[in-house]
């Protein structure tokens, strides 16, 4: 039985952000992780395995400049979208089976009411690189600083404002003098 329908399966190793943005499928070993998970169900294993089988085969990820989306399911379809800016915390979880298979799950949490992860990137081969990729897009990963020379800019802006006020004052004075001259001629 083939468990690897996509030629682009799995996380490419190494590389920078480009290799992470290119992730569309979990690593093929996720199939065996699901198989092991369903074995825990003992005699219920086939029942447990069927949805996991379809989940593995339909699972698709998309990472872009704005956020992540994941979709899976054949009867009941699921699609999750979230933006990097809304990430609250990132968990990397690897159970014994995942460690044996050399994969990991990256769980992404946003500020919603559920206690479970809002989006799980299962079957990540390079889970630490995926985590750092997400971390660098999270809020607060670098300190917010005022732009260089902000104080100078503020001082210059204030000086210009004062100059404008002085000019307007002079204009008023000139106009007042002109009005007085015109009134004197008439009267």
């Amino acid at each position: 039985m083939s468990h690897d329908p996509s030629p682009a399966a799995g996380a490419p190793q190494g590389g920078g952000d480009a290799s992470i943005l290119a992730i569309t499928r979990p690593h093929p070993n996720l199939f065996w992780h699901y198989a092991a998970l369903s074995l825990v169900g003992l005699c219920l294993a086939p029942v447990v395995f069927v949805p996991l089988f379809f989940k593995y085969h339909t699972l698709r990820y998309r990472l872009d400049e704005e956020g992540i989306s994941a979709s899976w399911g054949i009867l009941f379809k699921r699609e999750v979208h979230l933006t990097y800016k809304r990430i609250q915390d990132i968990h990397v979880k690897r159970n014994l089976v995942e460690r044996w298979l050399g994969i990991g799950t990256v769980q992404v949490q946003t500020a919603s009411g559920s206690s479970s992860a809002e989006l799980s990137l299962e079957g990540m081969e390079d889970h630490d690189a995926v985590r750092e990729f997400l971390y660098r897009r999270m809020r607060g990963h670098e300190r917010a600083t005022a732009p260089a020379g902000a104080a100078d800019q503020a001082a210059a802006g204030a000086a210009e404002g004062r100059e404008l006020a002085a000019l307007l004052g002079e204009i008023r004075g000139e106009l007042a003098a002109a009005r007085q001259a015109l009134e004197a001629r008439r009267g």
Binding site: A144, A154, G157, G161, L164, L167, L168, L175, A177, R185
Partner: peptide, 29 residues
């Protein structure tokens, strides 16, 4: 955190021109 807004240079130049014009207006009057 942003700096206080700088004036556009055209605003100050226009204000100076207006001052010169009002001065000439007063002298003419």
């Amino acid at each position: 955190p942003t700096a206080a807004a700088r004036l556009a240079p055209e605003v100050l130049a226009a204000a100076r021109e207006l001052r010169e014009e009002s001065r000439r207006f007063r002298q003419a009057a």
